[in-house]
Design a protein around this nucleic acid. Structure first.
Lengths: 123, 123, 123, 123
DNA sequence: GTGGTCTAGACCACG
DNA sequence: GTGGTCTAGACCACT
């Protein structure tokens, strides 16, 4: 379910955080569902438990999951709030990139093309 | 002309690279114009000459500038090519972000709003 | 009567202890009244009887309840003593927080506002 | 400047975070001033560098300090914002405790006494 | 068995 | 020399 790309320059714990967050925000991991334990996921991905621990701590800090000592880690209930917050962030990033593109001479048509849904008429 | 933000987590040499590249692509630094020498810019920014050297090396690798030994560093002639290449990169990033946003339930109207030019009717 | 919040980071036994103690000190559980049995409460809350056992042991240690072997657990008689002791603790905490606030530049007016009864003129 | 209390049940890294944050918010560590390096402070307190690293990471997350790779950690510029935020937190805590105290029968006089400045007429 | 903390030691990027 | 990441192994509190 989670994959580590060692060629990726980003730290492992960050890759884990992003993938779990993405799955949770998309609803692939429903609220209340239990995550694999720190040790179990560490074995599965063949990395150190401390690295998973760090990823889970960051996810809890972001409100994506909550930790119950002795029981496990679970997807948080208020995911929709996080989803809208994430959408705001993406919007800000797209806005900044669009401004950069315009400064380099991009036309509205180009911008439209970039955000157009890929394969929208795919069979 | 170039400013270093020490609070920024990004490395100093990267900040220099990005700012010079941005100025060149926008045309603020025309083709053939000479850049400040490594030592001069290092003194001006109060940072280590090695850091400037590294930034200039990266800029040369990207084709933004070229180094003429004993004479100095100059903005490359083929800036327009780099500009279109940079626009392609931005386009790819915006496309990826737009796909993410759609996966989280963003509407076309939202996407349109994000790329809309800010203050287009500003006085 | 007692509710467990699994999202709360605090251990379950501590949540049980705090809630029973609070009910007892407020008089909602009068002196001498019988508590649910360990097994019964464990079933009701769907948690391990060991956890309830630990909570009751802690409550007995604090003098909030007493255990009569073979008969059950009962609210202690000397609740008023515990209430004043608890008030002393709260007072110490408020005092420490007030000192912290003053060190950060809080005014007396702010402190007064914080301890002012909320909704004192509520209908 | 920083002291670890091993009898304190709280984790070491949290003690470091709280003490540095307190010093910064009170102005004892002015904005821009450099903190001891991770390794140096670890030696000074006779604890593992990783523990200090974790404390500094948390302080950076809170906006109290910023880290410049290869240069060191420095107190952030916008401390006043954090101070008011911290005061809001303290106010909320005092409010909650005051409500608890009232529920246990505390009088306004008692509350006033608790927030009264200690030793205000000390010679 | 589970999460949380800590130690010890190593490697890398940056300046 | 400095911060950032990772591994290995250990101990503790909680269920």
């Amino acid at each position: 379910m989670i994959r580590i790309d060692y060629r990726d320059g980003r730290p492992i714990y960050e890759q884990v955080v992003d993938q779990v967050e993405s799955l949770a925000l998309r609803g692939a991991l429903p609220s209340g569902s239990q995550l694999p334990s720190v040790r179990q996921l560490a074995v599965e991905l063949s990395i150190n438990p401390n690295t998973i621990q760090r990823a889970y701590a960051e996810l809890e800090r972001r409100g994506v999951i909550y930790a119950a000592k002795g029981r496990g880690n679970f997807i948080s209930d208020d995911i929709s709030v996080l989803r809208t917050r994430r959408l705001d962030e993406i919007g800000a990033q797209i806005g900044a990139l669009a401004a950069q593109a315009r400064a380099l001479g991009a036309t509205d048509a180009q911008l439209q093309g970039w955000i157009a849904q890929k394969g929208e008429d795919g069979t």
